[in-house]
């Protein structure tokens, strides 16, 4: 009678441990597997030379440039809107029907699958606004996609700035905007940056939204109106068309390593932020 619950406990806990280990093992396996096959093929030449023969040989330089250009442009477009929305929601208005609608909109936007963003970007930016397959079309589409993340994380970051700082600022004769600009935003910056970094990571890994908006040109771009192929699109094409597994693994490795590095640094930022606040 007394032993039975104990048995259930042992059984249940062992199952839980097993499942957890399996989960971690799978995820670690994926990384180790890809890096194991990819790392040996990565060298300076791979990173800095042009692809040859559709990517069967040569490097991935234009795709690195394309990825950076697309991601940076998207971030530059989305950040002011995202942070501005967060500032409005937290500082310029009280909880109301309007704030609920805005938050609901952001939540919905966050849930839309990337292929829909791709469809939309294609019909709206590429076709309707005649931007063609270009960095601009791709990054605008990406900007739509990462907007909710930036809103959310900025809002959290801004909310975590102590109310007393604002009160001090007002009591010293600051206007609302001066308070936001001189006290709130600087103190929320690490948190805001975390959100931006997460969005960078997401943009780098994105494929479906980009392939129909930025195209897949393998030439190094010279302006915002040039079509580009990002690393993940390049990887997709290499893998799907079976052009070269060796190059595919190497590209995936570059992709994963850059995303992991970006995510890691955003965690580092976040932790520093939390540490500083509790100090």
């Amino acid at each position: 009678m007394i032993i039975r619950p104990k048995y259930t406990q042992v059984l249940a806990v062992s199952l839980l441990v097993l499942a957890t280990l399996a989960t971690l093992a799978i995820l670690v396996f994926i990384i180790v597997f890809v890096l194991g096959k990819g790392l040996p093929n990565i060298n300076a030449e791979f990173l800095f030379s042009n692809p040859e023969d559709m990517g069967r040989a040569g490097g991935i330089f234009p795709t690195i440039v394309g990825t950076v250009a697309l991601t940076l442009t998207a971030i530059c477009i989305a950040t002011p809107f995202g942070v501005g929305t967060a500032v409005f929601l937290t500082e310029y208005t009280r909880e109301s029907r309007i704030t609920r609608i805005i938050r609901f909109g952001a939540d919905c936007l966050a849930g839309i699958p990337s292929i829909i963003f791709g469809l939309f970007g294609f019909i709206f930016f590429v076709t309707y606004l005649r931007m063609g397959w270009s960095i601009l079309s791709g990054s605008l589409t990406l900007a739509f996609m990462i907007l909710p993340t930036i809103i959310r994380t900025s809002e959290e970051a801004i909310k975590s700035v102590p109310y007393s700082y604002r009160e001090v600022s007002f009591s010293l004769g600051a206007t609302l905007w001066q308070t936001v600009y001189k006290v709130v935003l600087p103190n929320a910056l690490p948190g805001i940056l975390t959100g931006v970094m997460l969005s960078v990571g997401r943009s780098i890994g994105e494929t479906a939204a980009i392939i129909f908006t930025a195209g897949s040109s393998l030439r190094t771009p010279h302006s915002l109106f040039d079509s580009v192929r990002t690393m993940s699109v390049h990887f997709y094409i290499l893998a799907r068309e079976g052009l070269s597994n060796e190059k595919a693994y190497a590209t995936a490795t570059v992709l994963i390593v850059s995303i992991l590095m970006i995510n890691l640094s955003s965690y580092w930022l976040m932790n520093r932020f939390i540490l500083r606040k509790t100090k």
Partner: peptide, 16 residues
């Protein structure tokens, strides 16, 4: 760690 792994692009999962 788990959240970092959430950052692996879907094309890579597909490839695996």
């Amino acid at each position: 760690t788990i959240e970092l792994l959430a950052g692996i692009p879907s094309v890579v999962y597909g490839f695996i």
